[in-house]
Design a protein around this nucleic acid. Sequence first.
DNA 1: ATAGGGTTAG
Length: 652
Amino acid sequence: MFLSLFSSKSRNLFVRGLHFAKQSTRPSAEDIIFRAVCVNIRRKKWKFLDQLSSSLTNSLLSRVFLEFQSSPQLLLEVYRRIGGQKAILDSLESCCILVHVMVDQRNYDEAVCLMKELMMSKGYLPLEVLEALINRMSMWSPSTAVFDALIRACTQNGATEGAYGVIKKLRMENYWVSIHAWNNFLNHLLKIGEVRRFWMVYREMISYEYYENVNTFNLLIYAFCEECKLSEAISVFYRMLKRGIVPNVVGFNMLINGACSADDLDLAVKLLKEMGAMSGGIVSPNAVTYNCLINGYCKRGKLEVAKRILAKMIEMDVKPNIRTYATLIDGYSRNGYLEEAFWLCNNMVESGLIPNAVVYNSFVHWLYMEGDIGGVALLLSDMMLKYIPPDRFTHSIIAKGLCRNGHVNEAIKFHSWLVEKNLVEDAFLHNILINYLYRNNNTSGAKQLLCSMFVRGLIPDQVTYGTMIDGYCKAGEMESAAKVYTDMVKVDKNPNLVIFNSLLDGLCKEESIDCSRFLVDGMKSLNMYDAVTYNTLLNGYCRMGMIKEAFDLFTSMRKAGFLVNKVTYNIMINLLCKFGLFEHAKELVSIMFSQDLAPDFVTYTTLVTNLSNKRSSEEVVKLHDHLVLQGVIPDSQTYEAIVSPVIKETAP
DNA sequence: ATAGGGTTAG
């Protein structure tokens, strides 16, 4: 192998190299290879390098990179040629030299990738990488882009504290943290739902006298939208214009998406129409804009409008993408129109787009919800045939689908299989399983699963704790629920509204009325309460026969407005029916219609069941007809059990 | 930089 080194030309260079070597008159084997490699790199003899690739050890590579650190172009070529990226990762120093080279060549993605790998698989801490980068700093232009890349690598790895630590350290060492780096970190905070921290960091950044750029302003809009503060978000837009900053489509999209999630679709449409005027003719909608609106309408069941937006999009020459179709497909499936969803999928394929895991996940999920196990099996095998890898969503959907269709043990087996195959799992999947184990009264199984989460390095989240608390509350084991609550607070997880509501329900169920009121007062003082809270208490009053309290509460709930929903009326209708006050109950039904809260299958069942116990068959049929004529969809079980036999009986 | 799919409450 080394024979070729000693061809005459190489030999000359080799000897010359030896001449300059100070430390030793007898070069080691590595020295020999090192010289040879360097020579051939200079001459771009890549074939030679390929032959040597197996001898390129860590220390050798380090030496080579150091040798060529001032020729970035050449080094980049070496990196691409040798395919020995693993070897490069083994040496922090050579890796950092390469990162500098990449950044210098504006190849930021590669730089970020390299650092992500370095931290993920080699376990280097962000601050260690930073130090190594700084050590190589003097050789290069004082560009801070390399730090931007490091912060991006941290946020992409989910290392929030790592990223913030790098920012702090840089400031301490008097390096400039670019606005891009701040924006990246701020965006990361919003993505992980840390809105409060977002504002803290934003204020910190402003205190260092940074000027916001268009991206920062967009992030402020995003943050306000997350907090459902739409008017504040819009005022950010005008503040940006006043500063003379040119807006872009991203800010508008954030506003439109925010309006959609705040259930203000009129505003969303208005923004779409006014985009041009508001931006002085600079900005026009893109695919994201339309997708946000389509999603808004799909989630509210307004499929016809959603489809009209798709048509509009095409008319305006904006190409629908896979997300457009995935959104529509999910919207149609979610609202019970699976046939139409499959038809849309066909359209999509004909337009040249290939269904991805998201599309399959929607179908699988809604087929499971319909109990169509056979359909699921077909789709999953189709997915495999087309080499579309399932993701963590697929896994959760399968686990939940199995549980929902009565196969909890199969779901547990499926989970074990995932563990065995070392496939992605997350807290989400565990939460689903834990929930169903409780429902099946398998408390010990649920506890085991929680333990296995810890073992597998998965951190239980608020939902995990909430699921356990709810499980114990439903089982009437309030002491165990309280214990989980204490455990949760110990690990610094704050209870959320859902958890409080679960606890309240548990207290109401065991008829601890004083504790229940105490909890509600506490929740009010924390400003953490909603319609569920009040419905739970109302239901508790009704169950305990505290009629006066129930009516008083109902009145104050109606005064507040937002505390009343369909469930509230269903509870009250049930109460009135129990006392045989059917006329009053029907009055509440009309009020429901007038408040745009259409009675649902629960309303139907409550009325029909109670009426059939106390009144004639004719009245039951009359009520059924009355409700159906007003557009109420009957609960099929109730209909089959009560109404259908009566109709047959009265028929001639 | 923004958009799509999975968990918890009555």
